[in-house]
Design a protein around this nucleic acid. Structure first.
Lengths: 211, 211
DNA sequence: TCTTTTTCTGACCATATGGTCAAGACTATG
DNA sequence: CATAGTCTTGACCATATGGTCAGAAAAAGA
């Protein structure tokens, strides 16, 4: 038997447990905020004794840091769908789709991210200043190129990005409000699609891109 | 002398002190979240002993409730600028202006509101279900009337409203991120104006309204 | 099977926090 | 000036929370 097999399996098992805790933590942090979340609540959500959670993540900050870090990875993944090789209709359309999909499937993550930024990004400030700044600048260049090529109106790329972020994340962060305004019912599959199409339609037309 | 004068003056003094505490609380709640905010932090921000804060607001919840309630009033005030008597260019344009102005002048309030909604609106759920639902439905009717009159494209009024809320509030709630992307500098007067114009331009064009 | 390493957990501790209280200070009024 | 009502505040308390730890249990390895 390969001597690496057993250790690998063990590593996997450890990783699985960490992931379970991280999922529980993401949910609790989203619902209660960092200050309101307690290790006991997280442990209960993960169906583990509190001390066991501390075995995998020594401190609350450490756990929170990893939750936020995971969200950032998801964010980066969606960022990849913004391909500058295609035109603005495909690039921006796909990006909006991807971000709306994240809001639908990972609302808790989006809320944790929003909370972190709202409180001054104490944990991920370095990511903001490096990765986010670079990504944003590179996308601004891409949009400017589209503008120069006459593929869209000469709007401010920066504020366009803010609008996309704001609108797409709103469906996660303010999901409770949206549900209240939707006869206290979660958005159905078709309502989600309508939301997606509305957002894309208004923004794309707003920047002078025809589908 | 009017017998009401002295009591009134006293009432004013009490009110002034309450307002000072409410302002301090709004700031602290915005920065720390409900769970992270402590009565001591709020007392320090208001430059009062903690026990004195408790004299005016018996519990943390009570204080928070009033802070959130104040924000809702500000929100309603901005909502008034959405006049259906004018056309969409004026009505929606003025509404965006008003909301952007709130984001600029009361960012802490906006953050508290966002935080409250993100955590399921435990305090102001009744406002959402009554006032907000009514206001939203009435605006949807107004927009539908504009659409019927051929003054704008047949978009979903509901999702248009969400987009306006999301985008305008983003400049307050994610102000830290925006500042980081703005060479770590707060938006200047002219940058705020550029933001306003960008938002109005894209949204109004996006719904087929010419200025 | 015996030993070693990793995982698990109840009990415990130090600290921070929301809230109380009683006594003092201040203010208006008769 | 005396009295009554309002405001102020340091000291205090009960509780909740993040985190520790010793030892049990389980798994891996020899």
């Amino acid at each position: 038997m390969n001597p690496d097999t057993v250790p690998a399996r063990k590593q996997n098992k450890r990783r699985e447990k960490e992931v379970a805790i991280l999922q529980a933590a993401e949910k609790v942090f989203a619902e209660e905020g960092f200050g309101g979340a307690t290790m006991q609540l997280i442990a209960d959500a993960a169906q583990l004794p509190k001390a066991n959670v501390h075995y995998y993540f020594s401190t609350k900050e450490e756990l929170y840091r990893q939750v936020v870090s995971n969200i950032f990875d998801v964010w980066l993944q969606a960022a990849g769908s913004f391909e500058e090789s295609d035109g603005p209709a495909e690039g921006i359309g796909a990006y909006i789709d991807a971000k709306m999909e994240i809001s639908r499937t990972r609302p808790a993550g989006s809320k944790v991210w929003a909370s972190e930024v709202m409180h001054g990004a104490p944990i991920i400030q370095d990511y903001l200043e490096t990765t986010l700044v670079e990504w944003t600048n590179s996308r601004i260049q891409a949009i400017d190129a589209w503008i120069a090529a006459g593929l869209m109106d000469p709007i401010s790329p920066r504020h366009l990005l803010y609008m996309i972020w704001a609108t797409t994340q709103h469906y996660a962060d303010f999901g409770h409000q949206i549900q209240t305004l939707n006869r206290n019912t979660p958005l159905s599959e078709s309502e989600w699609n309508a939301a997606k199409e509305s957002v894309k339609k208004i923004i794309l037309k707003g920047i002078g891109v025809s589908p």
